[in-house]
Design a protein around this nucleic acid. Structure first.
Lengths: 224, 224
DNA sequence: CCAAAAGTGTTAAAACTACACCCATGA
DNA sequence: TCATGGGTGTAGTTTTAACACTTTTGG
């Protein structure tokens, strides 16, 4: 017998950051054996991006600065016939923000490195992997990577970010030269002594925000 | 009073082609004053891409060779509270296929050039413009443009395609050199005398299909 | 023989790649 | 003073961009 074909709408978000030199993804515990992406159901009058923001804020206390629609998975139709429409977003947060360890929630929410992912429910593993691919792709021709850094950062931070996401090493001098030529950074005048207190302190930079959106148009800005 | 929040799922497709030297989009007549994208509701057990294919086939008799998900618009909530989820796809068809004029359907379905678009219903104008942007973007780093040409084509055809989509003129010698270096074409041995019978006949080429997918990975293949 | 489109190389400028040493700091 | 990470320039190669004439065909 044909069932009434209801539809279930869900939003899931792949929140990514750079931490300890690797790209990590935010997952929440689902049961003893599985994790899942932060996700939920939009309120009845809520735009989807708002829902995505709210869901991440509610489940992880994280306020995302960058958020974009990733893909819509709409082919799953459970036995009851109610098709599931899963609109996936991906978001980036600066490494500085990931203060999850400080919450007592470590058991129920955590960051996972790309090569160390736990079993996930439904199609979440696939969603994560689409997000990673997309991020790699976008990095080359948009300024998206900047969203992963705090306000002030060193050139080494920036280079590490690109290396981590692209998965290859870059030449330090060539990297700095190109960034310099692009003219998108301004020195803050401040310095930061390196994390383990060892070595020469590095200058801190910030992005010139006016340049920020100008960039996006002219393809292939960061051809590393 | 809060209404029961049903959800309506629709699929719309932006079908694009190159014709008469410009990029055109397929629209169907909606009423005396408005046109719309081909669209419809997926069957209860039908995957979304299948639905997109079927809808275009049914409404225009066109069998698309290239089809990709474009974007999902999910923020429209009419007065009755039933949110509309509109999953948009974009597809490409070779110029040779657009035999619409031959059908007696010219009144109800037609191709429209980018700079000559009629009033459309709902958000369809926006969907079309997102599709055009995406196409422009993709052209630079994938082999997507090939889908717009018939099996056999001239180098002039190919160059025209790139010029039309990118919206700028390209140098003939540089263009041919790059295409040649890429090694993705093979001569058919045939020639075709130009459309108006005037001028020297051009050699016809086809794509080496084995190369086809190899390409997609290494960013920035067509940096014109 | 004229109009129209196809086809073909060279050169200068710019971008990219590879590469090695000195500097400032804390321990 | 040493270990650690920050910072800097050059030369060879590759890629890109600009540019004009000859060839083949149909009318």
């Amino acid at each position: 017998m044909a069932r009434k074909s209801g539809i279930k709408l869900t939003v899931v978000v792949v929140v990514m950051t750079i931490s300890e030199g690797v790209l990590k993804t935010l997952l929440v515990r689902h049961d003893d054996n599985h994790w899942s992406l932060p996700g939920g159901i939009p309120h009845s009058d809520e735009p989807l991006t708002k829902a995505a923001e709210r869901i991440v804020l509610e489940s992880a206390g994280i306020d995302m600065e960058y958020l974009e629609q990733l893909f819509t998975f709409g082919d799953f139709i459970p036995d009851n016939g109610a098709r599931v429409i899963e609109v996936a977003y991906h978001g980036l947060v600066p490494s500085a923000l990931l203060r999850i360890d400080k919450l007592a929630t470590r058991q129920t929410i955590s960051w996972f490195a790309e090569d160390d992912q736990p079993p996930m429910i439904d199609n979440h593993q696939e969603v994560v992997s689409v997000a990673h691919q997309r991020l790699r792709g976008k990095l080359a021709y948009t300024a998206v990577g900047f969203e992963l850094l705090p306000d002030k950062f060193t050139l080494a931070d920036l280079q590490n970010l690109y290396e981590v996401i692209l998965g290859k090493e870059l030449d330090k001098r060539n990297f700095r030269k190109k960034i310099n030529d692009l003219g998108i950074l301004e020195p803050t005048g401040e310095e930061r002594t390196s994390r383990k207190g060892r070595g020469r302190p590095a200058s801190l930079y910030r992005f010139k925000s006016e340049v920020f959106h100008t960039i996006e148009t002219k393809g292939d800005i960061f051809p590393f």
